[in-house]
Design a protein around this nucleic acid. Sequence first.
RNA 1: GUCCUCGUAGCUCAACUGGAUAGAGCGUUGGCCUCCGAAGCCAAAGGUUGCGCGUUCAAAUCGCGCCGAGGGCACCA
Length: 507
Amino acid sequence: MFREAIRKELNKIVSEGTVFSVERSENPEHGDYSSNIALVLAKKMENPPASPDGTVGAGGPRKVAEDLKVRLQNKNWRAETAGPGFLNFWIQKEALLNALGKKISFKTLTKNINLEFVSANPTGPLTMANGRGGFYGDALANILEAVGHKVTREYYINDAGNQIHILYESILAAEGKMPDKEEYYKGDYIKKLKGKSAQQAAAVLLKEIKLSLQKAGIKFDVWFSEASMRKKGELKETLEFLNGKKILKEKEGALWWNERVVVKSNGEPTYFLSDLAYHRNKLVKRRFDVVVTIVGADHHAEIKQVEEKMKIFGIDQNRLKIIIMQLVRLVSQGKEVKMSKRAGEFVILDDLIKTVGLDAARWFFLERSPDTHMDFDLDLAKERSKKNPVYYVQYAHARACSILKKAKQSRNANLNLLAQPAELNLIKKILQLTEIIEDITNDYQVHRLPRYAYELAKIFTDFYEKHHVIDPENQDLTFARATLVFATQKTLKQVLGLMGIAAPEKM
RNA sequence: GUCCUCGUAGCUCAACUGGAUAGAGCGUUGGCCUCCGAAGCCAAAGGUUGCGCGUUCAAAUCGCGCCGAGGGCACCA
């Protein structure tokens, strides 16, 4: 909230479109927030610093910063110059206490967003890798909803392609009615599907997927079937549209869009065409303001193609956001274990949750950036699940609850009594949540949230170690501190809730 | 071969998208329970951010070139 306020003030100074930063300082010596605005302006005036510390060279950024500093003083903060020309801001205590006393709310946004994730083919159980995208998408949806967006959580069921046929043949092969082939699915679950038709088998597997998702706490609003999209003739429509644009060419009996086949020589549509039709459905037919697609890295090339080619439908690129989740490597005893649904070797999401617990599993995946090529050692995960940082955060929450049960509270607490550094740090951290949420709604980097939760828990613990909340000799101070503990507890609960992780009152 | 992604402490990962002295957890070493919850706290050790050029006042972050890992390059999905 203060970041926003500072930015607003700085915007009054610069001309339209000037890019400058306002960020939380890592180092407390650099204040609560810092900006490079003077460095940017000095550069614009073609007067860069002559030395790295900015002290040499009259009229350099240091000078610009000094001038700005005077104009920027405010009852909410104090500004200072430092380094090569940074402006650092210290938030005043009164401003912090005032903000703590008010109800914290997010900036309201109201877009209609479609978020597609998981979308695993109904040809086997959900794997650990599906869990990564699943937890990430679920938490992202929670966050987007928290700021007011309307989010449709969608699962694309690939129930009309060749892979369903392969599933069927895999079952026949398991029954000994067909010779085995390398591309067939081979897990134990195939044996349980004996005697089922292709559609029946897919239906059974989809039901199991839904059950696993439910157990994992991953919710969906829409189950979008490819087969039904075909039935409605949307593939044909898309094809006709592309034909109208005169970009398709026939070669060797197939229809091509540049280097990609759209319709095979046997008349069957390719997966690429389905994907185009599906995204057209979301963006053009159902007219979502924003469409977010979360895919695994093994599909990144295809989805990038779709992103690129969607331009032909006249879609503003900002409306389509692709998030690529890097794959998870399973490591055991220092060696990689190849995970393959076809070979029947993989870690099932259900098993993972059973072994490490749902809260730890969610935390484990949410903590990491989608870009991380992560190594996962199940044995180590088991061993460490009790040491997972998630318990630290939950413990802090339980502790806060416990204190609140014992401490007397008052609505009219005199917050001015909160003056210790540990108390003010805690207030600052609580107030930061709005900024974290704002960042995530902009860049969809969900892993910022567990980081924040941990930091908040850490700072709360620091406060707890240094100061007693309940002081029988000083009721006013008890009231003030209890208010702070209450705000912390609420914030922790809210953050854990957004991640789909329990906030226990006792552990 | 080519394109995409990644390479940060012994291990698993951060670093607010170009900012100031690169941070956490686990592991290791040494200290803490008459005290609102010790699933905790304090302290220490641990780094040429894969390597080399370059751009910049400023590079883990941007560009180029190597090295290494994962993935994509089918009329498979």
